[in-house]
């Protein structure tokens, strides 16, 4: 008995256009993969920096996320403490070990307990650094890696995303380009997980009424950090 792989592939081949030989198909796939076709890019997202920030905030808030802006990394602890207080949340966070956050002087704020690593069931608040943001739909892009556990994005009830404005793009396409630029040959270095996060967890499964926080975070807050690439990128 031939194996399933060969069986399926030969059935597929038998069903394809007989005028397109295998060699021609391979060539056309190679071309497509090496020069990905240019797709329609919505005009909505082709904006200057200031408008891009506003669109991101508007779109994120439309899907029940909240946003705030700070002018430097040093303002992060206060902003986070203030956010936790406002929602009556305990003053501790679990955060990733993204080098960006190394520059934050957490010690100045002893009331805020900071722990590092992957999320545990008991962690209520997480803080993670986004790889990029997409203004088009208010989406944050997060990538997994040695410093970025994926569980922090999903287990805790309250998720705070740090998004450097220098990494806020108009479209998803620009974030892929940035990932390629940073990771080199993406075929080899592609992260285990890329998460696009657009608002908190939601469900409409009970009588089609939208409710927040079914399995993932109930609250999502995005802090946009100003500054140039040197400081925040």
């Amino acid at each position: 008995m031939i194996n399933a792989r060969e069986e399926i592939l030969s059935k597929i081949k038998a069903g394809l256009d007989p005028l397109q030989s295998r060699a021609r198909r391979e060539k056309s796939v190679e071309t497509r993969l090496s020069n990905p076709s240019k797709h329609v890019i919505p005009k909505r997202a082709q904006l200057d920096r200031a408008k891009r920030i506003l669109l991101f905030q508007q779109m994120a808030e439309e899907v029940a996320a909240t946003t705030s802006r700070v002018s430097s990394l040093n303002e992060l602890p206060e902003t986070i403490i203030e956010y936790l207080n406002r929602h009556n949340l305990p003053s501790h966070i679990k955060t990733d070990t993204n080098p960006l956050l190394n520059r934050v002087d957490w010690a100045k704020h002893p009331t805020l307990e900071v722990k590092y690593g992957k999320a545990e069931d008991c962690d209520q608040n997480s803080v993670t650094v986004a790889f990029a943001g997409v203004a088009e739909t208010g989406t944050a892009v997060l990538t997994s890696g040695p410093n970025n556990p994926t569980t922090l994005n999903f287990l805790p009830e309250n998720h705070i995303i740090i998004l450097p404005v220098s990494r806020l793009f108009g479209t998803y396409e620009e974030t892929w380009a940035r990932l390629r630029a940073e990771m080199g040959e993406i075929e080899k270095t592609f992260p285990r997980t890329v998460n696009w996060i657009t608002g908190p967890s939601r469900t409409g499964d009970i009588e089609q009424t939208i409710q927040l926080g079914i399995h993932g975070p109930k609250r999502l807050h995005v802090i946009l950090v100003e500054g140039n690439d040197e400081e925040t990128g």
Binding site: T137, T139, N195, T198
Partner: peptide, 24 residues
């Protein structure tokens, strides 16, 4: 589908966790 601009979570997964990953 739902008329959302984008669903809450779109996730791209590639292989098992890497040697240096902390979860997955």
């Amino acid at each position: 589908a739902t008329g959302q601009e984008m669903s809450s979570y779109t996730t791209f997964s590639t292989g098992p966790k890497r040697d240096t990953d902390v979860d997955g």
